[in-house]
Design a binder for these strands. Structure first.
Length: 450
RNA sequence: CGGGAUGUAGCGCAGCCUGGUAGCGCAUCUGUUUUGGGAACAGAGGGUCGCAAGUUCGAAUCUUGCCAUCCCGACCA
């Protein structure tokens, strides 16, 4: 993306050339804030229950989130690839999940009447690919991931993109020789997730999750705190206030202490909640909140390596099944999740890291040579600094422009009007705080890019 | 999948009970005046009333079936 920015030139993003179909009134189908705001801000359009078209503004945010997720996976040593959306039923029969999955799986037959399905996840497929190439323990450990659309035919899709049927997900799969090594992979993802969510402007906490037949403590859900969250979360306040380890952490080093530091503190969702353990926390540290699950990591041992006979030869010459784990992040769900965690009565408040545009430029008197000149100058300088501004060059009235910028939630709005221009200033408004200040063009650019 | 509700213009809704020319607000288009927080006036366009059968001289309205969407619950990134 960085490299692309230098070579990928495009015309200035003027609102009059953009495709931003806003809604003034809230569609009656939407009941939670993120869904309402995504529809009103022209980010998505529903095509069927739980299936959405990503309009330009929503698409930009989706891609920015995806890119942050990608960068942190790469940093942790995971390797990107891409598997298909449509899978053959054969693989799923081999793992036994073709029958186990039930009606949530969208089943399709092709023209030759072969059984296919729209993948709800990719354990089978990747284990199959992996086992067909890897023979030696020397090829381990490996973490492979892809970011791909998936489909789960939910009984009841709802909450817009937060619980859609078609959704974009990042899923990583780890392959190790021993359970001890698998824990190291698990720890890498644990840390990568903390850093990822912090970069996304979110407060995400790892909560203990059900581990299934494998047992152990190697399963965590990452939840973000928001009033509209679907499940109750109980946690030690110290955990919530803890910062992410930071992207300069050494993924080649021992991460156990970093993980222990967090898992030692109480945090659980409804299903795993232990009232006694929670009561043991000092009262002022106890926190009950609502949470939205945005990530899930877990170790599942040889559950899939067994049916696919994914074995490697160890140093002792003996073949052994690979130890696996899988690690998901709901990328499209995060778009809604971030809005749930960050909005106000006027609209969305994007964290700068995922905002569709870095700033908005509002020209209050389009056609006035001086205003046009200052707005163009601002646009050029902010673009030059890589801020990717959106220039509102429409002939709408001021009030319309202001409320529109508030709705789409860009971090800053810079207003250029005849009054300010006369005095050599523009007005910079911080979307989050609402603070406004009059600054010279140079000072405004410095403030936004500094 | 159980329970509840709704489908009428792009969006939000009224009309249905009691059958008789399909309406309102916003948005859109034209014109004039406006223009620093969702402008005013004048005019215009836009609808197989979710679909299909039925009852009737006549159905948005009554009956039956189907489809779609949403809400609450149980389950999931």
């Amino acid at each position: 993306m960085r490299a692309g920015a230098a070579t990928h030139k495009r015309a200035p993003m003027r609102l009059t050339n953009y495709f931003l179909p806003l809604l003034k009134e809230t569609p009656s189908d939407a009941t939670i804030a993120s869904h309402q705001l995504m529809l009103r801000a022209g980010m998505v359009r529903q095509n069927a229950a739980g299936i959405y078209t990503w309009l330009p503004l929503g698409h930009k945010v989706l891609k920015r989130i995806e890119q942050i997720v990608r960068e942190e996976q790469n940093r942790a040593g995971a390797i990107e690839m891409l598997m298909p959306t449509i899978q053959s039923a054969e693989l799923w029969k081999q793992s036994g999940r073709y029958d186990a999955y039930g009606p949530e799986m969208l089943r399709i037959t092709d023209r030759h009447d072969r059984e296919m399905l729209f993948g709800p996840t990719n354990e089978e497929m990747l284990t199959d690919v992996f086992s067909s190439f890897v023979r030696s323990y020397k090829d381990l450990p490996k973490m492979l991931y892809h970011i791909q659309w998936k489909f789960r035919d939910e009984r009841r899709p709802r909450f817009g993109v937060m619980r859609g049927r078609e959704f974009l997900m990042k899923d990583t799969y780890s392959f190790d020789l021993t359970p001890e090594d698998a824990r190291k992979s698990y720890n890498k993802m644990f840390v990568a997730y903390l850093n990822t969510f912090e970069r996304l402007g979110l407060k995400a906490i790892p909560v203990r999750a059900e581990t299934g037949p494998i047992g152990g403590d190697l399963s965590h859900e990452f939840v973000i705190l928001a009033d509209s969250g679907e499940s109750a979360v109980y946690a030690d306040r110290d955990l919530v206030e803890m910062n992410a380890p930071g992207t300069d952490i050494d993924f080649g080093g021992d991460l156990q202490s970093v993980v222990d530091q967090r898992t030692a503190l109480y945090a659980a969702a409804d299903e795993m909640h232990d009232a006694d353990a929670f009561a043991a926390i000092p009262e002022d540290k106890r926190m009950e909140a609502r949470g939205i699950e945005v990530g899930h990591i877990f170790y599942f041992g040889t559950k899939y390596s067994e049916p696919f006979n994914a074995k490697v030869q160890g140093p002792d010459g003996k073949p052994s099944l690979v130890e696996m784990g899988s690690y998901g992040i709901g990328v499209s769900r995060l778009v809604g999740g971030i809005i749930e965690a960050s909005h106000d009565e006027n609209g969305i408040v994007w964290p700068a890291s995922v905002a569709p545009f870095g700033a908005g430029i509002i020209n209050l008197k389009v056609g006035d040579a001086e205003c046009d000149g200052v707005a163009e100058e601002l646009y050029a300088k902010l673009s030059e600094a890589g801020l990717d501004p959106l220039y509102d060059d429409s002939s709408d009235r001021g009030g319309v422009k202001f409320s529109r910028m508030d709705l789409i939630g860009l971090p800053y709005a810079v207003t250029v009007g005849p009054r300010g221009v006369r005095d050599g200033v523009v007005e910079v408004k911080d979307r989050r705080t609402g603070e406004r200040e009059s600054l010279s063009v140079e000072a405004a650019v410095a403030k936004l890019t500094g």
